[in-house]
């Protein structure tokens, strides 16, 4: 009986497909130990990341860091510009136009960074007597899982390395807190 080329081709295709399918099935990925899984997914738990914004490089860099931390789990990035309102005036009193403009501009830059990562950005201008109080309140309002705070490295002020905001937040963090600073 003369083999038909098409039949031979089908036979080879059948064998190869069968073999490859079974090989793929049998090659299981390694299991992840409980401790490793806990560490890995605790980072992915951050679905809402708050980044306090100022119109400065280190806070914009904090936005970039937050986006990279939140990319895998498609996190929402909350960008909050906090305005400290002196105690002599009421919290909702009109403020100079230029302060609002600065806030809007800083938020706009931060938002562009978030949009580059195709994540959802929420912007807010927060008024508070103290910046740390504003950040804490914003974290609660948006149910933030993580705050990423970029701060200026102040070499001359060692050992008081961080600002008063950082000190206050570290004493009583409203949620997980990452503080980023770069050597000058």
């Amino acid at each position: 009986m003369q083999p038909h080329p098409l039949g031979v081709l089908i036979a080879i295709g059948f064998l190869v497909t069968l073999g490859l399918t079974l090989l793929w099935m049998l090659r299981l990925p390694q299991p992840m130990p409980k401790e490793v899984a806990r560490a890995v997914y605790s980072v992915e738990a951050a679905r809402t990341i708050l980044v306090p914004i100022l119109e400065l490089f280190y806070s914009e860099r904090a936005v970039e860091l937050a986006c990279r931390l939140g990319r895998l789990q498609n996190a929402t990035i909350v960008l909050a510009y906090t305005i400290e309102v002196p105690r002599v005036i009421s919290l909702d009193a009109p403020l100079p136009k230029e302060i609002n403009e600065r806030a809007q501009k800083a938020l706009e830059h931060a938002k562009q960074i978030v949009e580059r990562h195709e994540l959802k950005a929420v912007t807010d201008i927060v008024r508070a007597r103290e910046a740390d109080e504003g950040i804490r309140r914003t974290a609660k309002t948006y149910q933030a899982d993580l705050i990423v705070l970029g701060v200026e490295f102040a070499e001359n002020r060692v050992p008081s390395l961080f600002t008063r905001v950082v000190d206050a937040l570290l004493r009583r963090p409203p949620c997980e807190l990452i503080i980023d600073t770069m050597p000058a």
Binding site: P3, H4, G7, V8, I10, A11, F14, L15
Partner: peptide
């Protein structure tokens, strides 16, 4: 089963 199919296609199958 694979043997029956492969031998069948390769040596006896007539399209």
């Amino acid at each position: 089963e694979a043997s029956i199919i492969v031998i069948g296609f390769a040596f006896a199958w007539r399209p």
